[in-house]
Each structure stands twice: as structure tokens, then as C-alpha cells.
């Protein structure tokens, strides 16, 4: 059965600076993803992986090209519309967990949904509990981030990325700060969630072991996709 396309990028470019100091970070990027896909974005440092994820995550605007997701032309929407789109359809996992230190694990997981709704609801709490169960932290739901290990924090961050049932989770070096065992655990988790919940994942990584566990490899070199 053909899976529905969720994302389509054509001729995407990103430039920083102007004139002689202008740097072309992304050059003519064309990319498509379908629902339920788990892709690894590989490339050396400076190849533009993080910039591409940032643009796909609507946190930054591209300099040129087209970017459509779920039928929305994300190149031509307002800041407020991009924020709303991001909260409904995208999840993020960063290299550093970036959990809010004043909130418990459960509250951190609920945070994106609560930001969108304006308050915390019982169904939100139930969903966050389920996600913490799924990442193996059901008995740590009331712990503050400071009381969790690095691997546990990143698992909470994965659960947080999934609270709004995103179509696509963008993960920027999600295991970069973890030891091998914790990295494997987090990767297993994302794989399981991908299979069970159907969320697509685009994972930026240097690690070939991580890439090997994804269905697809997208290789970036000097701002261009060299293999997809």
C-alpha cells in the first residue's frame, strides 16, 4: 500500500550573511517524506543538517525554494501560523534535552500541549502518563529533570515530542550526548514509537549505528543532498 506523502521540499536554499560574506548553507535541497517513515540525516559537521532540520521544523525560514507539508505552503505563512502549525504537527528532540527545570517529568511532557491549549487537561495528563510509560519512566513522572539521568532526560524529551501526536518528529543528534547504552535505549524507543504510533522521524546523526537502524539514509555534504 502506498503511504501518503507528508512533506515535500523543492530547490530549498538557505543563505547567511550578505555580499562577500554570504554563505550558502543549503543548496538546492529537494526532499520528500511519507507518513510512518524513519529516515536518518547524515553528514559531517557543517554540512547543513541542523539548518535543514530547523527549516523543516518551521523555526527558521528558507531563503528560497518551496516547502509544503500536509498541504500547507510553509514558505508563505505568518509567524503565528507557523507557531500553530508547529505545535500541532511537529515534535522536536534536541541533542540537549532542554527540559524545563521547574516542571516535573510529567509536566514537561504535557508542556507543548498545554502551551497550545492554554491549560492542562485530564486527557493531556493521561496521554503524558501513557508516553512516560512508553519510554519506561512511569515511576519517575513527578521527578524534576535535575533528579533524572542524562538518558532518562532524553527519554522524557522523546515523550514530550510525541504529546501532540505529531506527524513528523525532528531529532537533532538525539543520542549525541548519551553513552552507548542510553543511546541504544533512546533509539529503540524511537523505533518502537515509529512502528506503533506511526509518527515519521527524521533523525540527524553522525553515528552510522543509528543510521543503520533507520529505513532510509539521506546524506548531506556541503549543503547538498548527495544520497537520498
Amino acid at each position: 500500500m502506498t503511504k501518503a506523502p507528508i512533506l515535500s521540499v523543492t530547490g530549498l536554499t538557505k543563505d547567511f550573511g550578505e555580499g562577500e560574506t554570504q554563505t550558502h548553507v543549503l543548496k538546492d535541497i529537494s526532499l520528500a517524506m511519507v507518513e510512518g517513515e524513519m529516515a536518518a540525516l547524515l553528514g559531517p559537521s557543517g554540512s547543513g543538517k541542523s539548518t535543514l532540520l530547523t527549516i523543516l521544523g518551521t523555526l527558521m525560514r528558507a531563503s528560497g525554494g518551496t516547502y509544503d507539508m500536509l498541504g500547507v505552503d510553509l514558505m508563505h505563512v505568518s509567524e503565528a501560523q507557523r507557531t500553530e502549525f508547529r505545535s500541532k504537527n511537529l515534535g522536536f528532540v534536541f541533542q540537549f534535552h532542554h527540559l524545563l527545570p521547574d516542571l516535573s517529568a510529567l509536566e514537561n511532557v504535557m508542556m507543548p500541549a498545554a502551551c497550545a491549549a492554554g491549560w492542562e487537561t485530564a486527557p493531556m495528563r493521561d496521554r503524558a502518563s501513557e508516553l512516560l510509560d512508553a519510554v519506561g519512566l512511569s515511576d519517575h513522572r513527578d521527578f524534576r529533570p535535575a533528579a533524572l539521568s542524562g538518558g532518562q532526560r532524553q527519554r522524557v524529551a522523546v515523550a514530550r515530542a510525541l504529546i501532540n501526536n505529531p506527524v513528523l518528529v525532528l531529532a537533532d543528534e538525539p543520542t549525541g550526548n548519551l553513552d552507548r547504552e542510553s543511546a541504544d535505549h533512546v533509539m529503540d524507543l524511537m523505533r518502537t514509537i515509529n512502528q506503533k504510533m506511526g509518527s515519521s522521524f527524521l533523525i540527524s546523526t553522525h553515528d552510522e549505528r543509528i543510521a543503520a537502524r533507520c529505513q532510509r539514509r539521506i546524506e548531506l555534504l556541503d549543503g547538498r543532498i548527495v544520497r537520498s
Partner: peptide, 10 residues
């Protein structure tokens, strides 16, 4: 920054 990235409005 993380709240804004996760969809918190201005």
C-alpha cells in the same frame, strides 16, 4: 526558546 519551539505563542 524551547517553549517557543514547542509551539508557545509570543
Amino acid at each position: 526558546g524551547i517553549m517557543r519551539a514547542m509551539g508557545a505563542s509570543r
